[in-house]
């Protein structure tokens, strides 16, 4: 479970995130929506310990990311907007490296690497250097590395950016498949994607939560998610 409580982040005089509070229960997929500069990526960076909050706290399965970073990070798999890949490494070597930095027990390593390769359908490229892979495969390798260490929470920052329609559909199916074992927080601009795979939605604008609830709650009165988005971020 993730709990974001009164979270704020200031860069100089600019508040990128202002007093936001929301949470995600286990086995739910939350879509974090908002126009560019709404504070989605900043929120995700704070949730993963990449940035520190100015105020408020983020609890990951009860562990504060600021005061218990190691315990909290053990439970998180994070895919930034640009997949952080060591392009000179082969896919299996990269996954083995991630096993190492996440202190995965040596008896568990090959099983976890095989599992990540299987879930991401990377069998045909597993022994190829990452630099020769297509954008779609690189994105899958990026998501694959989030699965190493068997975290309960996946935080995916715009995973479908730059992919062609076929790859977007493939990726959407992969994320759907991951939902049964993980809490997932997904940021995206593609509202149709949210309507298809998300259970809960938080819409941010100018660093503030404009609306939050389940997808059904937001779409009451026959409104589409697009109508709601346009209305609250106007």
């Amino acid at each position: 479970m993730i709990e974001v409580k009164s979270l704020s982040k200031r860069f100089g005089k600019h508040w990128a995130v202002k007093n936001t509070t929301w949470s995600v229960e286990d086995n739910r997929l939350l879509g974090l929506l908002g126009p560019n500069g709404a504070g989605k990526s900043t929120t995700m960076k704070i949730m993963t310990g990449l940035l520190c909050s100015s105020e408020g706290q983020v609890l990951i399965d009860g562990y504060d990311i600021l005061t218990h970073p190691i315990e909290a990070k053990r439970r998180i798999g994070y895919l930034p907007e640009t997949p952080p890949l060591y392009e000179e490494l082969k896919v299996v070597d990269f996954f083995d490296f991630v096993c190492g930095i996440k202190s995965v027990d040596s008896s568990q390593r090959s099983r976890q690497i095989d599992q990540a390769i299987e879930k991401m359908s990377l069998q045909e490229v597993a022994f190829k250097p990452i630099r020769v892979l297509s954008k779609g495969f690189k994105q899958r390798v990026g998501i694959g590395q989030t699965l190493i260490g068997e975290p309960s929470i996946l935080i995916l920052d715009e995973p479908s950016v730059g992919l062609d329609p076929h790859q977007v559909v493939e990726l959407r199916n992969i994320i759907k498949g991951l939902k049964k074992d993980h809490v997932i927080v997904l940021s995206t601009h593609v509202l149709s994607e949210v309507e298809q795979i998300c259970d809960d939605v938080v819409i941010l604008d100018k660093g503030e939560v404009k609306i939050q609830g389940t997808l059904q709650e937001l779409k009451t009165g026959g409104r589409s998610l697009e109508d709601v988005f346009i209305e609250v971020t106007r």
């Binding site: 990449l50 190691i70 315990e71 990070k73 952080p84 991630v98 930095i101 996440k102 202190s103």
Partner: peptide, 13 residues
């Protein structure tokens, strides 16, 4: 190369 987040978001000090 934007690989620093891998290290900073891993459970290491």
């Amino acid at each position: 190369l934007n690989t620093f987040p891998v290290l900073l978001t891993s459970p290491i000090t």
